[in-house]
Amino acid sequence: MTPRLTLAHSPCPNDTFVFHALTHGLVPGAPEADVRLADIDITNGLAERSELDVLKVSYAVLPHVLDHYALLPCGGAVGRGCGPLVLVKDGDTADTLAGARVAVPSTSSTAYLLFRLWAARTLPGGVGEIVVLPFHEIMPAVRDGLVDAGLVIHEARFTYGHYGLRLVTDLGEEWEKQTGLPVPLGAIIARRSLGARRLGELARAIRASVQSAWNAPEASRAYVLKHAQEMATDVVDQHIELYVNSFTAELGDDGQAAVRALLGRSAELGLLPAVPDGALDFPAVPDGAPDPPADSRQRPQH
């Protein structure tokens, strides 16, 4: 009997939507998995300690874990118009964040890495202090003047106006202007020790799970809302629409180029270790393994 996989991903709507079919036995032939839902900071740490088989992690931790894990070419969060935002209190007339006190949700996240890349280019004097706060506390902290600015992700894109905040910069938009590439945010990784054949089977199962979610979104609805952390249903829908896209089904050439650009630029500035040649390549599936179904890369048009 094939051992069950251990899998960890966030409770965010895009992840529960993507993995619902796989983890609920709705993908024929998919590996069975014991699932742990945890915030990305926790899954990043699990990956760095090599504790589980399959994880959703920040692209920013990838150089630290590639000895033990392979990057899967599907299931992650890459896209356009979906990057992190830097916010200040509306009415704040400061035209620079130099010397500012900035709240961030994590220092191991891709959002923070993108912020550092942006700051290196636009704030030669640097910011004054980085304060790590739980994600849900950042916008209230900016609103209440406890910090000068906040770095936010995900659904904050749709809700920051409710807190009386103003956008300073959209880091995803800045990234796209600089590179012409989509923004790589979250990656799916799996143990290299699983072997090429099993990694290939897992990738096909994830693609099938994505397609199943698109084909029958109502099937995962209750599960997604249960774990959406009191997010309004319209925000849940916007979240899924933005973060589950063609790159989720297949990273593809543009997605791969975006990952290499992010890690390469970060290494050049000394923000991350350099990635060895070939470390991002997905292991070749042995001859005789079936190709993914043709429709697994196609998002339905609504």
Rank of each mutant, 00 (worst) to 15 (best):
34 D>N: 14
158 F>A: 09
220 S>G: 15
183 V>F: 13
283 P>S: 07
165 L>E: 09
217 P>S: 02
28 P>H: 04
125 G>C: 05
92 D>K: 06
287 D>H: 12
17 F>D: 01
115 F>G: 01
196 A>E: 07
200 G>A: 10
179 T>G: 09
94 A>F: 01
236 V>L: 04
230 E>I: 03
141 A>Q: 05
102 V>L: 14
69 Y>F: 15
245 N>H: 07
212 S>W: 07
64 H>I: 01
258 A>I: 14
263 L>W: 00
82 C>K: 04
242 L>V: 12
172 G>D: 13
5 L>E: 02
20 H>F: 13
149 A>K: 03
103 A>S: 14
241 E>R: 11
14 N>C: 13
183 V>S: 06
186 G>Q: 05
114 L>G: 11
8 A>H: 03
9 H>D: 08
241 E>N: 05
13 P>S: 15
136 H>D: 13
184 P>M: 05
87 L>V: 11
94 A>L: 06
184 P>L: 08
217 P>E: 03
62 L>Y: 03
176 E>R: 10
242 L>D: 15
238 Q>A: 13
105 P>V: 08
270 G>H: 12
114 L>R: 01
166 R>A: 14
81 G>H: 14
170 D>I: 07
255 G>V: 03
291 D>H: 12
135 F>L: 10
144 D>S: 12
92 D>G: 07
235 V>G: 02
173 E>I: 00
179 T>I: 10
159 T>C: 10
159 T>F: 00
142 V>F: 01
108 S>D: 03
7 L>W: 12
121 R>W: 07
126 G>D: 13
262 L>C: 07
174 E>K: 06
119 A>Q: 10
291 D>A: 14
149 A>I: 08
301 Q>S: 12
154 H>K: 07
18 V>T: 15
18 V>M: 01
223 Y>A: 12
162 H>W: 10
221 R>Y: 11
6 T>Q: 09
125 G>S: 11
299 R>F: 04
37 L>Q: 02
82 C>I: 15
45 G>I: 05
197 R>S: 00
256 Q>L: 07
186 G>R: 02
21 A>H: 08
203 A>D: 02
32 E>V: 15
188 I>Y: 13
149 A>Y: 01
9 H>G: 05
129 E>W: 07
133 L>P: 00
245 N>S: 06
265 R>I: 07
88 V>T: 11
259 V>R: 00
278 G>M: 05
263 L>R: 00
54 V>L: 12
47 A>P: 01
237 D>S: 14
251 L>E: 08
59 Y>I: 03
115 F>A: 08
138 I>D: 06
301 Q>M: 03
261 A>S: 04
217 P>A: 05
291 D>V: 15
272 L>N: 02
193 S>E: 09
20 H>Y: 15
30 A>F: 08
246 S>G: 09
38 A>M: 06
46 L>S: 07
220 S>Y: 02
15 D>M: 14
273 P>G: 10
287 D>C: 00
183 V>Q: 06
256 Q>A: 13
9 H>T: 12
105 P>M: 09
215 N>C: 06
157 R>L: 06
